[in-house]
Amino acid sequence: MMTIDTIFTPWVSLAGGALIGVASVLLMLTLGRIMGATGILAGVLTPTTHPDTGWRLAVLAGMISGPLAVLAFSGEMPEIQVPVSLPMLLVGGFLVGIGVTYGSGCTSGHGVCGMARLSRRSIAATATFMVTTGITVFVIRHVLGA
């Protein structure tokens, strides 16, 4: 695997994070729902177990419009640099799908919304995945040296 150097961007990252927070608060204020990417996607994929798909599809459509809005404002698409191979993307994606389904959430649902509610489950889940992600990156980059 190649590594790509990225620039430290504290201010835009902070602003981006604040917008993620604003969206999370607004979804709770309007519909009383957790802004979790996993839950919203799973709800759309398995509508029989999640009766209320309309708002989830609308949120998804909004999310996908995000990069286009950035393009319209700044004249540039947000940068997507992928330093991993296609098989790694597929294996990683499959594991993420299994993990978020068993773990009932991901970075947005547990890491932001759950932690902000001081949910024990979300704090434990976030601590767990931050550690296993860190170990995985270390092993791939520095042990396997891929």
């Binding site: 996607l41 990683g92 594991l95 970075t107 976030t126 767990t128 995985t136």
Partner: peptide
């Protein structure tokens, strides 16, 4: 589940959000 999610995230670099 959270542990498996982390492994996948570390391999691919993308999370669902």
């Amino acid at each position: 589940g959270a542990a498996v999610f982390g492994v996948g995230w570390g391999i691919a670099g993308f999370c669902p959000g």
